[in-house]
Simulated scan of single mutants.
Amino acid sequence: MADKEFDIIVYGATGYTGRLVAEYLDKHYRDRDDGPKWAMAGRSLEKLEAVRDEIGAPKDTPLVVADADDAAALEEMCKRTKVVLTTVGPYQLYGDKLLAACVKTGTDYADLCGEPAWMAEKIAEHEEAAKNSGARICFSSGFDSIPFDLGVLMTQKVAKERYGKPAPRIRGRVRAMQGTFSGGTAASLGATMKAAAKNPKIINVLRDPFALAPGFDGPEQPSGMIPKYEKDLDKWAAPFVMAPINTKNVHRTNFLLGHPYGEDFQYDEMVLTSPGEAGKKMAEAAAEMMKNPFGAKPPKPGEGPSKEERENGYYDILFVAEMENGETFHYGVKGKYDPGYGSTSRMLAETGIALANSDGPGGIGTPGSFLGEDLVKRLEEHAEISFAAEN
């Protein structure tokens, strides 16, 4: 990629999550020789200046003005940078023109999208053009779906090292989590449900575990939607609200890499509760909550937890690999900070840096397919996320 004015532009830097990304880049990399050249972008210069001052970034931090509805301004912005990181969602409402601008200008892109119907639409619309322009379009570069996408990738690495072949079945299980889902996640789900009400075909996309692997029809997958007791873990498992997007991204990574997990690979995600009758009741209650996962008053985009709440958050994800011979092993991904904001902002920033520091063919992919173990190393070194086999 030719030299650009910036390595990264953070688009949506005046929003709640966008400012966290900007703050992380400033605080973590300001005095480091390996830090990226980056800028803050949004539709209002006044708001950009205010956020720059609020997060304590230097006065000379570059600011770029571009409205999400102004295709020409977005193209000019994209021409100035190697990578655009965008937190402006729901992407199905505000993301079309920025994505098109990145594809047209050959600019790498990463977002926090958890909207599979929109993603499937954009894959059909832009994949060939992205391959031609060299733009790497990297969806779902936050808590959905990096810990799960990369967790499966690393679990399969261990399986191949130990057994010489991938695990045909992996269970993703959230063992513990403290924190909140972002207002953007809630808004994205709401926008998706409204779109599905108008276009019933979207329901088919949401139900299809291989919706992001066009042309591939894989094996039947475990649903993960019915509470069940898992004897080997001695705990009940309940549905996980992010499973519908994470599982699709895991299968897309497998698809794009040429099925290194196998074409018969099965994967599902659930949340672990506890053993006994109490665990069963918790799992059943969680399943009932799936009908309205964010409650009567969902978080709104732009809202979020306090700094203390973000810093006290954490998550712990278990991957259970089941081999053909009946043996199993465990792999864990653990992260510090609130998953929906504190850790997500770090993951998006590090994805951007990894893209800026690497080359590769264009297309529409995933963190696992584009960056793989290189991103794992970055997250371990900078974002306080650990990846490790447990037995």
Score class of each variant (00 low, 15 high):
residue 38 W to H: 00
residue 62 P to D: 05
residue 38 W to I: 06
residue 56 G to V: 10
residue 68 A to Y: 13
residue 42 G to S: 15
residue 45 L to Q: 15
residue 68 A to R: 09
residue 78 C to E: 01
residue 57 A to E: 02
residue 40 M to E: 03
residue 84 V to W: 03
residue 38 W to G: 00
residue 61 T to S: 09
residue 42 G to Y: 11
residue 78 C to V: 06
residue 59 K to S: 15
residue 86 T to H: 10
residue 80 R to N: 04
residue 81 T to Y: 03
residue 85 L to Y: 06
residue 38 W to F: 15
residue 43 R to T: 11
residue 39 A to Y: 08
residue 75 E to Y: 04
residue 40 M to C: 07
residue 61 T to W: 01
residue 56 G to A: 08
residue 54 E to Y: 05
residue 61 T to D: 00
residue 58 P to H: 08
residue 52 R to A: 09
residue 57 A to W: 03
residue 72 A to Q: 13
residue 64 V to A: 03
residue 46 E to W: 02
residue 54 E to S: 15
residue 69 D to N: 12
residue 41 A to I: 09
residue 43 R to H: 14
residue 38 W to T: 01
residue 66 A to I: 05
residue 38 W to P: 00
residue 75 E to S: 13
residue 80 R to I: 02
residue 68 A to L: 13
residue 71 A to K: 10
residue 37 K to I: 05
residue 73 A to E: 05
residue 43 R to C: 13
residue 38 W to A: 01
residue 84 V to L: 07
residue 41 A to H: 08
residue 73 A to C: 11
residue 39 A to C: 15
residue 81 T to L: 04
residue 71 A to E: 15
residue 69 D to M: 09
residue 82 K to G: 08
residue 55 I to V: 15
residue 82 K to H: 14
residue 85 L to K: 03
residue 49 E to W: 00
residue 72 A to Y: 06
residue 45 L to C: 10
residue 48 L to S: 02
residue 54 E to W: 06
residue 40 M to A: 14
residue 39 A to I: 13
residue 73 A to M: 08
residue 58 P to F: 05
residue 74 L to R: 00
residue 77 M to D: 06
residue 38 W to C: 02
residue 50 A to S: 15
residue 49 E to L: 04
residue 84 V to G: 01
residue 64 V to P: 00
residue 38 W to D: 00
residue 40 M to S: 05
residue 79 K to P: 00
residue 53 D to M: 04
residue 51 V to H: 01
residue 44 S to P: 10
residue 81 T to H: 02
residue 45 L to K: 14
residue 76 E to T: 09
residue 82 K to E: 05
residue 65 V to H: 04
residue 59 K to I: 08
residue 61 T to E: 00
residue 60 D to S: 11
residue 56 G to W: 10
residue 67 D to Q: 06
residue 69 D to E: 14
residue 69 D to V: 05
residue 61 T to H: 01
residue 67 D to T: 06
residue 73 A to L: 06
residue 69 D to C: 02
residue 45 L to F: 14
residue 55 I to E: 04
residue 73 A to S: 15
residue 53 D to E: 15
residue 70 D to I: 05
residue 81 T to S: 15
residue 59 K to M: 11
residue 80 R to D: 02
residue 54 E to C: 05
residue 53 D to V: 09
residue 60 D to R: 06
residue 69 D to H: 11
residue 60 D to T: 11
residue 75 E to L: 12
residue 42 G to P: 11
residue 40 M to Q: 05
residue 59 K to C: 02
residue 41 A to Q: 08
residue 69 D to Y: 07
residue 79 K to N: 12
residue 74 L to Y: 06
